[in-house]
Design a protein around this nucleic acid. Structure first.
Lengths: 168, 168
DNA sequence: ACTGAAAGACACAGACT
DNA sequence: AGTCTGTGTCTTTCAGT
């Protein structure tokens, strides 16, 4: 169990950023519906609204809650094609890496980017309207990025599962 | 412009599930903060609360809005390791595929699964506490799935970008 | 489709246990 | 750390334009 490092000897556990079981119950509910009212959460976790409110405030403060997001339907918003792009860089020094990261953050089509193990340096998840849209992205936007080595693309033919749930 | 196919000749455009510019402005705001009040959205898109409320209701009904989700911090909830797993199946008939999909949906560690082009059949995004946790998942959960062929894992060393934004 | 008004529910803060 | 109570704001509905 983590202890607050403020006073080394404190045997009394102080308030520290470890969500307890009630916090987790609250997070489970919010995970599925960010708009659930504090009142309803309270009744489901068998607490009154005030402590629930305070717990949520703390979870936000600790950064356990990153964002209240609205998830949209890609198909219905002209983003029906998902492509996984593997890219390697020509140069691997720190400065080149940072420039690449900056470039990626400027590409709205790239919704995720990870530094990965293996023969490629990065994995990108790209959303496009269709194949023509992806081709345009590839040729006019991605290929223009400095220091780019090889690119290999894997096309997503179907979504089997897609969730953000970490707690059950 | 799409028209309602109910009556083939209807020249009058009926209400149809195409978000207009105001809808998109609302979606842009909700995308970033699912808890933004209707009142505040209204003031930002220069409308009164009532039509904003009605537009949001329609966007939910059309399925453009999939979910109001709370995104949590994986690191702070013992899910600090992300692994991309490529898997191929032994048999590729429809029945075998459906059984695989069912099995994947039962694995909480798998947060995303896509059917992909290339030598593998599926790509999985897996969250685990650490390498020991992933090993446990691999040996005791994933490998137990029926009809599983090869598995190849790519480890995520760093998150460069992670968003769900489709509108800008 | 939007405006304005009106009811009910909720968030949030305070005093108390 | 939680309950109870009150106030102001927001959501939500409805009649009207």
């Amino acid at each position: 169990m983590k202890r607050n490092p403020k006073t080394e000897e404190s045997a009394i556990p102080q308030t520290h950023p470890e969500p307890d079981d009630k916090d987790r119950e609250i997070l489970k509910l919010l995970q599925e519906n960010a708009r659930m009212s504090v009142t309803e959460i309270a009744s489901r976790v068998h607490l009154s609204p005030t402590p629930v409110h305070e717990r949520i405030r703390r979870l936000e403060e600790w950064g356990v809650i990153r964002q209240y997001a609205t998830l949209l339907d890609a198909q219905k918003l002209d983003k029906g094609l998902m492509v996984i792009c593997y890219v390697s860089l020509k140069q691997h020094d720190k400065k080149a890496g940072l420039k690449f990261i900056q470039a990626i953050n400027g590409l709205n089509e790239v919704v995720e980017c990870y530094s990965i193990s293996g023969e490629f340096d990065f994995m990108l998840k790209v959303l496009a309207k269709d194949m023509a849209g992806f081709y345009d992205f590839h040729v006019n936007r991605l290929s223009q990025v400095e220091n780019l080595g090889h690119v290999q693309s894997v096309f997503v033919m179907g979504v089997i599962k897609q969730t953000h749930k970490m707690l059950f």
